[in-house]
Simulated scan of single mutants.
Amino acid sequence: MSIAMAIAPHLPYLRRFARALTGSQPGGDAYVAASLEAIIADPALFDDSLDPRVATYQVLLGIWDSVDINRHVDTTEMPYERNLEAMTPRARQAFLLTTVEGFDAAQAATILKTDDAEISALLDEAGREIASQVATSVMIIEDEPLIAMDIEVLVEGLGHDVAGIARTHSEAVKLAHETNPGLILADIQLADGSSGLEAVNELLNELDVPVIFITAYPERLLTGERPEPAFLVTKPFEPEVVKAVISQALFFDTRAGKSSKVAAAG
């Protein structure tokens, strides 16, 4: 397969990534054009031993590091764009690669020509930078004390406050009314047999707040037949995954709202 054929399917996503990096369509498209021109001039820049998508992004970020076309993010139309503007470039790259483009940590490390440890550090940095802009109060709905404590440590490590921990549906509703949290982390199966899903949907009648479900039963939510959550973490979870999803939810300033209530599995 020719390099052109290998790259072609990935160009729309590469443009999306470049536009997010620069904060503008002209700036992003200029980097993509410069990357393609560089590959034409020197095909060896495209590492054909890699997955073609990984190799394509790797070339673009190599150009980003060597050619100052438009490194300033200057788009302020949406909250997430303002959040992006305040992030340091390297952390921004790692964050966008993993959360927007869907690369795993190993792929992101290959694209950035680094290792998993630096990717983890960059994502932590991105999370802290996001928290410095949108630090909020987080309510945890979780009936297992050790898991609740682990989540509490993760949340506070990112710079957010913990509004409290609820173990049942009724505790969750009461706590939310008392604290008005800016983010909810919820299990779907609670201590007294009540449902965290039902508690969240009740709260979304009154609150406009992003919700992350952390559950050992993802199949109850991911049916393809009902409204599904935007943010879902499966137990047992990796701490880095939870931190990344928290940062992602706040980065995009997503609001669940009444229209985004998740239907209970029957």
Rank of each mutant, 00 (worst) to 15 (best):
E125Q: 14
E125H: 10
A126L: 10
A126M: 03
A126F: 04
A126W: 03
G127K: 04
G127Q: 03
G127C: 09
A131R: 03
A131H: 07
Q133F: 07
T136F: 08
T136V: 05
S137L: 05
S137W: 03
S137A: 13
S137N: 15
V138G: 15
V138K: 14
M139S: 14
M139K: 07
M139G: 13
M139W: 08
M139R: 11
M139E: 12
M139L: 12
I140G: 06
I141N: 00
E142S: 09
E144C: 06
E144I: 09
P145E: 04
P145K: 04
L146T: 12
L146A: 13
I147N: 01
I147P: 04
A148L: 06
M149D: 11
D150K: 04
D150P: 10
I151R: 04
E152C: 08
E152N: 10
E152G: 09
E152W: 00
V153E: 13
V153K: 07
V153F: 02
L154H: 14
L154D: 15
E156C: 06
E156Q: 11
G157F: 09
G157A: 00
G159E: 07
G159H: 02
V162T: 10
V162P: 11
A166D: 11
A166V: 07
R167M: 08
S170M: 07
A172V: 12
V173L: 02
K174I: 10
K174G: 12
K174P: 15
L175H: 08
A176M: 12
A176N: 10
A176V: 05
H177G: 12
T179A: 05
T179E: 09
N180A: 09
N180G: 08
N180K: 09
P181Y: 01
G182V: 02
G182L: 02
L183N: 08
I184Q: 01
L185R: 01
I188F: 01
I188L: 01
L190M: 06
A191D: 13
A191K: 12
G193F: 05
G193W: 03
G193I: 04
G193C: 04
S194Q: 05
S194N: 10
S194A: 00
S195C: 03
G196Y: 05
G196F: 06
L197E: 02
L197M: 02
A199V: 09
A199P: 10
V200N: 00
V200A: 00
E202C: 01
L204F: 01
N205R: 04
D208Q: 06
V209N: 05
P210S: 04
V211M: 00
V211K: 01
I212K: 00
I214Y: 00
T215D: 00
Y217W: 05
Y217F: 08
P218Q: 02
E219A: 11
G224W: 01
E225I: 03
E225A: 09
R226D: 08
P227T: 07
E228G: 14
P229N: 01
F231Q: 10
L232I: 14
V233L: 05
T234C: 07
K235F: 07
K235Q: 00
E238F: 08
E238C: 14
E238W: 09
P239E: 15
V242C: 05
K243I: 11
A244N: 11
V245Y: 08
Q248G: 14
Q248P: 15
A249G: 11
L250I: 09
F251T: 12
D253K: 13
T254L: 14
A256S: 13
G257P: 10
G257A: 15
S259Q: 08
S260K: 10
K261W: 07
A263F: 00
A264G: 09
